[in-house]
Design a protein around this nucleic acid. Sequence first.
DNA 1: CTAGGGTTAG
Length: 482
Amino acid sequence: MTHIMRYMKRFPLVQTRMTKLFAIICHPKVQLHTYLKPPKANQALKKYLNSNCITEALLFFRELMRKSPSTIDSFSFLFVLKACTQKHSATGGKQLHTLIIKFGFEPIIYLQTSLINMYSARGNLFDAHCVFDEITCKNIVCWTALISAYVDNQNPRKALKLVWQMQMDNLEPDNVTLTVALSACADIGALEMGEWIHAYVRRKEGLHIDLSLNNSLINMYAKCGDIVAARRLFDGMKKKDVTTWTSMIVGHALHGQAEEALKLFSKMRGINKNSRKHKRHGDCGSSLIVPNDVTFIGVLMACSHAGIVEEGKQHFKSMSEDYGLKPRESHFGCMVDLFCRAGLLNEAYEFILEMPFKPNAVVWRTLLGACTLKGNVEVATEVQGRLLELDPGYAGDYVAMSNIYASKGMWDQKIVVRHHIKQRRSPGCSLIEVGTEINEFVAADEDHPLRSEICTVLKHLLINMKSFGWSFHRSYCWCFSR
DNA sequence: CTAGGGTTAG
């Protein structure tokens, strides 16, 4: 054994080849790290990660665990955790957590933050929060990790509460925390909170305002109904990237301003052509902006909301032909929506059947909704059959069907469908105040179980009303009940 | 060698 060790010491180049052999002869407890020091093993892990070879990274780690556990240090876990977060395997993460405890690396804050991220990616907020609670000296980074965990898992209210709690803990939010918080505001249409954050951003000295923060601001204003403020910010930004452009295009599309959205899209492509020209002349190559698949969602949404079918079709084709982007399920969903809104029910139906995906309930429901509007019983019956297979418990589909039958005077069928609705949701009542300007609203009942749903409905209502150029100047009180 | 962030159909 000593001979081999000496040999390897003298000729480091043969080291890698020898390691395998060596590992087999040796008991794992032998101090291998003299020959394969942690930084080397970690660099290998990092290399796998950077080249997107996630499975290989995990396998490499497993080999290390088996053959030379002593080469593993706390940094190794950081890389492996990252790999594990990207790969959504169910048990791997928990096993890693156990190993971290076994190795005694539990109190290292870098690892704890990574663990929060890992649990969040699996939708396991309970364990994410547990890890957070165990951190003795909490810093801004682990707070932000937890906040973004709640945003990513559709609990923006809790996220905003945590931002508040963090400040109570004498920690000032930085640009990353604020970016996440703005995203939470956008989710619930909390314009007031968003504006407060914007004011904070401008007031706070030494705060680094970067692209992500600006993009998040644009998105917040657009989603909260103030498209003018969003556009003002967009026009004022010197540095823009795909996300900036995409956010603005989606914003206009949501507000029904299809023309503006499509104008922006062609302007964006114009920049592309110009900078390619510049690149040929040898300067200004860095500002190249290539639309991605999300950009096309915005473009298709714009076409759909404006009812321009032909242009929508063209963009859908151009997506894969000119940009090499493979349309995802949601792009096909946009196209179905495009046909439905234009009243082309048969075209929508055929499109769904030709999709390379198994159509989901949402897609069929879009078509069913259009059938309700058009009073098309034939297509609706067909669609309902599909929905019964996919999601039989959804009461809304029965309601839609019953409405279609009612509109055609087919009362017998209506009663049959109505009977299928077994559990009705309990009726609720909420009061919503709309102030002098229609870009803010408050749900009066703070603890109402449907509060967040009502706010979402209102948010969309508000966006739609604005797109029709409606505005209110008196104070309004609406009462919803069901 | 080290942890957190922005855009996504209905």
